[in-house]
Amino acid sequence: MTADLKLGLNLGYWPASPPPGQLELVTTADDCGYDSLWTAEAWGSDAVSPLAWYGAHTRRLRLATGLIQLSARTPACVAMTAATLDHLSGGRVVLGLGVSGPQVVEGWYGQPFPQPLARTREYVEIIRMALARQRPVTNDGPHYPLPYPGGTGLGKPLKLIVHPLRDRIPIYLGAEGPRNVALAAEIADGWVPIFYHAERGPKAYADALAAAPPGFEIACPVTVNITDDVAAGLQVVKWTLAFYIGGMGAKSVNFHLNLMGRLGYADDAAEVQRLFLAGDRAAAAAAVPDDLADGISLVGPLARVRERLALWRDSPVTTLLVGGVRDPAHLRALADLL
């Protein structure tokens, strides 16, 4: 159970252009007690640039990447970026990292996808070593060897020129599979699930999180739609689920599809994927079970949202990352409920 459930504002990544009104949402969240601001990346807007912009307009919000894709930047580059933004923001940075999937890693970044757990472990170790600045950074691992073993032979171990404001910036890992979640519990300060069911999630992830240390954070994205029409509100969540189950991954390798199976929706998810890949996206969204959409979101009038917040308070989740909100008044209303 979470004694003090925190709120974060989750802006995600942009669609075709920057959504209007986001700066007002950010400043509202900053004013009414939200703990953190999260931005993401896929193959469009990046996760870091918006945080620099919004950080200049806020005073309190922690600035979190949710998530930086490992294959987009070397770990040394991420350490430099984190140290820079942490100084500019007065120590407000949180690094959310994730491996993404093979379609993006190999199709967009032109990098190999295999061995994601081993790559993640090396990546985190290098970032932590660079920020600690206790010695020049070296790494003997196969994924990010430092210095580079080929080339001119002139490479040498280096230390960050800038002295980090904090020698240990919090690192959260985005993960879906049990082994990936267990890795987050082992080496990171927190975990960012992409979909966490308020009622089924605790059991589904209990084994993977069994070794999490005290103070381990779980920052969970939750679509919030304050509306009197619950069915219409859930339909928005269903469209998102249908897209991830059906389109965010290959037919044979889709981590989101596999996750739905672990939550107890294997047959439903297979049908959603079949319909989506057949081109019938409306039918795919309609095939998403109401209980699944309702379990990962907060939808309905304020009285219903207040009632369902109790499920999240009874879960291991420590921060709700509020997404989907367009009205600043709704952000304030949710803060009032907590």
Rank of each mutant, 00 (worst) to 15 (best):
G33E: 04
V48R: 02
G264V: 14
D280R: 07
A29E: 01
R274C: 04
I245C: 01
A250W: 13
L25G: 09
L302Y: 02
V288D: 01
L334D: 01
S45I: 00
A52Q: 03
A293Q: 03
A185H: 05
S252V: 15
L321Y: 07
L241F: 02
Y148V: 14
T120A: 09
L302P: 06
G141Q: 06
V105Y: 00
P145C: 13
R133T: 12
L320H: 01
F195Q: 09
T2D: 01
L95Q: 00
L277F: 10
L183N: 09
I296M: 01
S89L: 06
W108I: 06
L263T: 15
A231G: 15
V230Q: 12
L131G: 00
D290P: 09
F243R: 11
R59F: 00
R119S: 12
G233D: 03
Q134L: 10
T318F: 15
H330C: 01
Q103Y: 11
H256L: 10
A219V: 12
A284C: 15
G233K: 03
Q22C: 12
I127L: 12
D336I: 12
H143D: 13
L337Q: 02
R326E: 14
T84H: 10
L146P: 04
G91A: 03
Q111W: 11
P75H: 02
E307W: 05
E199P: 03
W191F: 08
V137R: 09
A219R: 06
